Amino acid sequence: MIEGPGFLLSVLAFLLALGPLVFVHELGHYLAGRRFGVKVEAFSVGFGREIGGFTDRHGTRWKFGWLPLGGYVRFAGDMNPASQPSAEWLSLPAAERSGTFQAKPLWQRAIIVAAGPIINFLVAILILAGFALAYGESRTPPTIGLVGPNSAAAAAGLRPGDRILSIGGRSVDTFDDVARYTRIRPGEASTIQLVREGQVQTVPVTLGTTTERDRFGNVFRLGQLGIGPAGRVIEPVGVLEAPVVAVRQTGQMVGMMVDTLWQIVSGRRPVSELGGPISIARASGEQLVLGPQAFVFLVALISINLGFINLLPVPMLDGGHLLFYAIEAVRRRPTDPRVVEWAFRGGVMAILALMVLVTANDLGSLGLWRGLSGLIG
């Protein structure tokens, strides 16, 4: 077992991972806004009181907030969190109002909002493309080489030589596709379509559950089918193919996030598995201890998470804005400002509640609640 990174190294790793990703996210909004002629009043990495910054020749205040858990770009005319036109905005001189966010056409506002998550995905794709160039891509065929005794596969009657075509209704191209599906579904019932001796068969299976402990002592509950390949196939990836591989891998990761989120919403996965800043900091420190490759891969994963979460249709997030823009496009007129205001208030409450929940989970993972219960007992 490897010794943990410690508090200071975890904080440093957290800042090294999240800080640049927040910056590039907000940079996406900034660059798109500037491209469409919107005046940018402030660009902040972090929230709360400013601890340092400068004002550029365009009048934009670049600053760092004391709470490094996010950031924001404030465009001219952003006089309320929902970016809705207001009486104050209408009172601006015409020339000044033309440079505000609200004065831009719907499609331009949508691009400005979407640019932040998009650049997060692009960062991840760039990193994953580099890994593909350096290490190739796993393309092991989904043909079973061995079946573990007393495993879920053995109980389902799977045999060496079977080639898996799909699992849970999802087509399978490589052995890794099977692993991705099973790992996040411990104990779940599913079906496997396979080819055996030239015949296509469909067999029911109940996935097994295994508990794994990593090198830092963290324990994970994972799904397991109990099969292995006949041999691993790693193929080199060229420069032109690397971005294609990276886009595919990014899509696979987003798919796993969607599946995991749905499992939590549907009650098949406990909400206690949701982590917050403390969990991210601890994971960042651990990956930094393991080496630069592990840390950079984690940065790619966090970047995908930032892009995905910000595109969720929750008011206050980028996806919430895009949702109202889609409604506006269909209705051909903006949503009633009162509806938007109440929706964004609800979004704020939901995000605050989620932050309380994940913080409680983080503190629980550190043993705080067990310690308190011991003191009370």
Rank of each mutant, 00 (worst) to 15 (best):
G46N: 11
A114F: 14
V11T: 14
L306D: 05
V40E: 09
G145I: 05
E41H: 03
V254C: 06
L31H: 00
G168V: 08
R282Q: 15
N310T: 08
L18F: 14
D177I: 04
Y30T: 08
P270E: 09
P68D: 11
G275I: 05
S91W: 00
E212Y: 00
L194P: 05
E328K: 01
L372Q: 07
G145P: 03
D162G: 04
G371Q: 13
G238C: 09
S83V: 08
M253G: 11
D56K: 03
I127P: 05
V40M: 13
I125E: 10
K63L: 14
L69K: 06
L146D: 13
V203H: 02
H58I: 01
R269Q: 13
L354D: 13
L69D: 10
W369N: 07
T202Q: 15
A353L: 14
R332V: 03
T260P: 00
R185H: 14
L106I: 13
W66Q: 12
G255Q: 12
P81L: 07
N80W: 03
V233M: 11
P149N: 12
G59N: 10
A17R: 04
L158M: 08
R183L: 15
V219G: 00
P186S: 01
S284W: 02
G367C: 05
R232T: 15
W262V: 04
L90W: 14
R74C: 01
T211W: 03
I164N: 03
R331V: 06
T191H: 09
A326F: 12
T202G: 03
A153N: 05
F54E: 12
N310H: 06
A153H: 02
V339S: 02
G161S: 08
R49W: 13
G255S: 13
L311Q: 05
R97L: 11
G28C: 05
A300W: 02
G228F: 03
